[in-house]
Design a protein around this nucleic acid. Structure first.
Length: 510
RNA sequence: CGGGGUGUAGCUCAGCUUGGUAGAGCGCUUCGUUCGGGACGAAGAGGUCGCAGGUUCAAAUCCUGUCACCCCGACCA
């Protein structure tokens, strides 16, 4: 029997560990369609919780949901030059609208008679189609701001995919707003970045660094891209989500104009912002351990799982009844705006298998309830943030009363642990050779987990950043709003010696 | 799109060099013993060996073609 539920452990082969966690928790699996995944019920339930929470936050900041088409006429994509350049090479294209029987057993082939006049692109993002509609809707400054979000799937034909982190089709939300003034649009962009960061930290228990993307890393067509970057347990950064200030670039490309109070016709200022199913990948890589998935209680599909131990009870039905009443009682408690959710696992499989299955699924609290507990009116509890073998007996009443507090404690413990890990692996670096050493594995054949977040001065030259990326695979993750180590002073670029306004965050990234 | 590799049972793979018509482990089903813990024994179900041609008395095995997938790069939420 392996010492841990997941083989290999993180330290041995991190990418493989990740795949095994996804598989063991039954979150998703590869589908027959290249690069596209099937999200299974447990994974989908996590996504639903993410969606619900974010959706509430979007509504609370004044946004409404709407829906725009999956297909975008090719010409729309062509309107914004940088935008085309950024996305053209990874688009799925629809060219026909009918299939016919081919000759010689070719099977079905596109009907040449049914070729589309203009190809349709499966949206890689919806700025162009939504902007086109905004151009129709916006006439006057009184029509502004337009604050709309859509939950949708998008397709980017990625060459290499990984479950949740990068799939050809992925699910996301994309907010698209239009404003009368630049200041308002910038404020919106930053507000939504804050919403994301708050969600990441308070719900996902995932500490993040907020900042602006460098020129080389920003969204195609944006004036400024803002991002939040958490550290995964292999010390790489994950771009959690982005919020873009689009200036008037898209408004000009799509004629989004309004008549202002001063009687002048002006271009609107637009923003867009999104997070995707990639967050599930981030959640996994932030908290999970060598025994599988670890879920923060606030997003867990189930808070508590009850494992009845009935095999040697005189009266198994009585144990089950005890478990059911416990479930109902717990369900009356609430945690983070939703009722405490309880799974009662009555399946006829071995207790050990059953227990480990829920360990691997990451449920925050497991309760073993058997005749002994029933006799003493107690429960036997194990927490997912502690060792799988660490269990404690608690009086039933006390447990029910404390369950919310225990869940809060687990939520906090996960955040603290993730933050401590990140802080341990983040440092200011003031010399080029130290920087290169930091990001170079000791064993090049089988690179161990190394590096982390480096805060180093950089003068803003893209060529320098490109060279670093080429040498080390390290990129500028963001120009932090506030230096996470507290040094916001200007200095000199560690690569060129040229003046630098502030330290920027460097890391290997997903 | 470059470089490497692999397609055999639900999964992981052996068999291929030296052709003789299919194997293991895990998983699954049933029974029994166990069990506050990922146990053990017995019996059983399950594959036209990616696909199409060719060579041969005979092809998982040799040849040709083709498709798909994986890994490493480049690109990317």
């Amino acid at each position: 029997m392996p010492k841990t539920a997941i083989t290999p452990p993180r330290a041995e082969n991190y990418p493989d560990w990740y795949q095994q966690v996804v598989k063991a928790a039954d979150l998703a699996e590869a589908s027959p369609v290249r690069g596209c995944m099937v999200i299974k019920p447990w994974g989908w339930a996590i996504w639903e919780n993410i969606q619900r929470t974010l959706d509430d936050m979007f509504k609370a900041t004044g946004h409404r949901n709407a829906y725009f088409p999956l297909f975008i006429p090719k010409s729309f994509l062509e309107k914004e030059a940088q935008h085309v350049e950024g996305f053209a090479k990874e688009c799925a294209v629809v060219t026909h609208h009918r299939l016919i029987e081919g000759s010689d057993g070719q099977g079905l082939i596109p009907d040449p008679e049914a070729k589309l006049e203009e190809p349709l692109i499966v949206r890689p993002t919806s700025e162009t189609i939504i902007g086109t509609m905004y151009a129709r809707w916006i006439q006057s400054y009184r029509d502004l701001p337009v604050l709309i979000n859509q939950w949708a799937n998008v397709v980017r034909w990625e060459l290499r995919t990984r479950l949740f982190l990068r799939t050809s089709e992925f699910l996301w939300q994309e907010g698209h707003t239009a404003h009368a003034t630049e200041a308002e649009a910038v404020e919106e962009t930053l507000r939504m970045l804050d919403v994301y960061a708050e969600f990441a930290e308070n719900w996902m228990a995932m500490p993040v660094i907020k900042g602006r993307k460098s020129e080389g890393e920003k969204f195609p067509g944006a004036v400024d891209t803002y991002t939040f970057e958490p550290m995964m347990q292999d010390r790489r950064a994950l771009q959690g989500g982005t919020s873009h200030f689009l200036g008037q670039n898209f408004a000009k490309a799509q004629d989004i104009m309004f008549l202002d109070a001063d009687g002048e016709r002006k271009y609107a200022w637009t923003t867009s912002w999104g997070v995707s199913t990639r967050l599930v990948g981030g959640l996994i890589m932030t908290h999970s351990d060598d025994d599988g998935l670890v879920l923060p209680p606030r997003l867990a599909p189930a808070h508590v799982v009850i494992l009845p131990i009935t095999h040697k009870a005189d009266d198994p039905e009585a144990v089950l009844a005890y478990c059911k009443s416990l479930r109902d009682e717990l369900g009356k408690q609430s945690h983070a705006h939703r009722p405490v959710t309880v799974e009662l696992d009555t399946r006829d499989i071995r207790g050990g298998d059953k227990n480990w299955e829920w360990v691997k699924k990451g449920v925050p609290i497991r309760l073993e309830v058997g005749p002994r507990d029933m006799a003493s009116d107690s429960v036997f509890m194990a927490r997912r943030d502690q060792s799988p073998r660490e269990k404690q007996a608690l009086p039933r009443g006390e447990f029910v009363e404390k369950v919310t507090a225990i869940l809060d404690e687990i939520q906090q413990a996960l955040y603290d642990r993730a933050k401590a890990f990140r802080d341990e692996n983040m440092r200011a670096i003031n010399a080029r050779d130290k920087f290169y050493k930091f990001f170079t594995p000791k064993n090049a054949e089988q690179p161990e987990i190394h590096g982390g977040f480096a805060l180093a001065h950089w003068s803003g030259e893209e060529a320098v950043a490109a060279q670093v990326q080429k040498d080390l695979g390290v990129t500028i993750r963001c120009i932090p709003f506030a230096d996470p180590l507290g040094d916001d002073e200007p200095g000199k670029c560690i690569f060129t010696g040229k003046p630098s306004e502030r330290r920027v965050l460097w890391a290997k990234a997903y």
